[in-house]
Write a protein that binds this DNA or RNA. Structure first.
Lengths: 196, 196
DNA sequence: CAAGATTTTGACCATTTGGTCGAAAGTTTT
DNA sequence: AAAACTTTCGACCAAATGGTCAAAATCTTG
């Protein structure tokens, strides 16, 4: 259904910049090119729209972590993962901000998801990291915190874009900025976890 | 004025958990223990309350960075700064989330502040970092991105508390968690920037 | 092309909410 | 203790907004 997709896209844009309460059905409908009652023909309520787009985003967000390969070289594997997350932040900053906004508010909708699927995924991947550490291929560091740090640094470039733009004088709009940021992040994180 | 302080505190709590639009004057007044008209006797409007608490927070947020001492040992100085930021995240998570929420929304109120005072502070402190790099005391890495990374990782523990709680099974409530997190963050960041 | 199904929307409603107002309650000053 | 000033609040208003509904427009199908 073409219309549902247009609505979802408009919703991500509105929810991410104005927050759940700040976004209005009217504005979403406008952006999707239809009237409010027409939008409500496709989605029963504002909350259902919100849940729907959140769920989509969360699925996409998860997938890169799921591919972590225990057989690969740890540093190269993490380089790949970090690079991928940096690209996602650059490509879909609104999606990142919508997710962040939900978690900031205490994750009222995603709480269950975070406690179940995300928790077990993190546990699973932490075990892989711990295996690498035990094999002496990574410096000894709590794997869960390492995962948090990767999320924090990579998503920061999307979530705090306004601050980064302000501080760098909108350098972040220029092509190559993302590569430069990736270089810095990779350099610090990978050096930080290489065994000495 | 005791009442203004109570209002400000209630406002930080409401704005940080419900966002600007989700927070209501009534709820803030309730939490501050007074009626809505009474609250509006102390602050002329919701937006002024918001601006006021944001400005307070931003001042506090800035101060640790200002103390960076070029004469000190780089690694020890950064250890001090990171530890301080981690403690701030643990002590005042709501303040952190309110700031994050403002930036997430595109920093409509703080834009000017970020482009002027924060920008020049970052430039000033970047120069110190660059000096350390030139002296061979730090690994060569873009100082601005290093500052972003420190902000990202430390504030993550406040801003994404809901996610961290969910994933760690509320371990983060236990005493010692913050120390453990600080250890991990310090270990990775400091190792990441030590010259090799 | 007519009957039926789907999609679209203008008009409307109920609730929420930011903010006002006038008066009451409390405090300070003379 | 009366006047003057500060603080508090019940009642109210106007605008915004989530959602409904019946009818119109459009599309599908026998």
């Amino acid at each position: 259904m073409e219309n549902r997709a247009a609505i979802a896209q408009a919703a991500v844009s509105e929810f991410s910049s104005r927050g759940y309460h700040g976004a209005t059905i009217d504005a979403i409908a406008d952006k999707a090119g239809m009237s409010k009652p027409n939008l409500l023909y496709y989605f029963p309520s504002k909350e259902v729209i919100y849940r729907t787009v959140l769920e989509q985003i969360v699925e996409e967000w998860l997938s890169p972590l799921m591919t972590l390969d225990p057989a690969a070289d740890p540093v190269e594997e993490l380089r790949r993962y970090i690079t991928l997350k940096m690209r996602m932040s650059a490509d879909r900053p609104q999606a990142s901000r919508l997710f962040a906004s939900e978690v900031l508010a205490g994750a009222p909708i995603l709480k269950d998801f975070l406690e179940t699927r995300l928790k077990s995924l993190v546990e699973e991947k932490s075990a892989i990291l711990q295996g690498w550490i035990d094999a002496g291929k990574l410096a000894p560091v709590d794997p869960v915190h390492l995962i948090f740090m990767i999320w924090a640094t990579t998503q920061h470039y999307a979530d705090f874009e306004a601050q980064i733009d302000a501080v760098t004088g909108a350098q972040s709009k220029k092509p190559g900025f993302n590569e430069q940021a990736s270089q810095a992040v990779l350099s610090i994180l990978l050096n930080g976890i290489k065994p000495r």
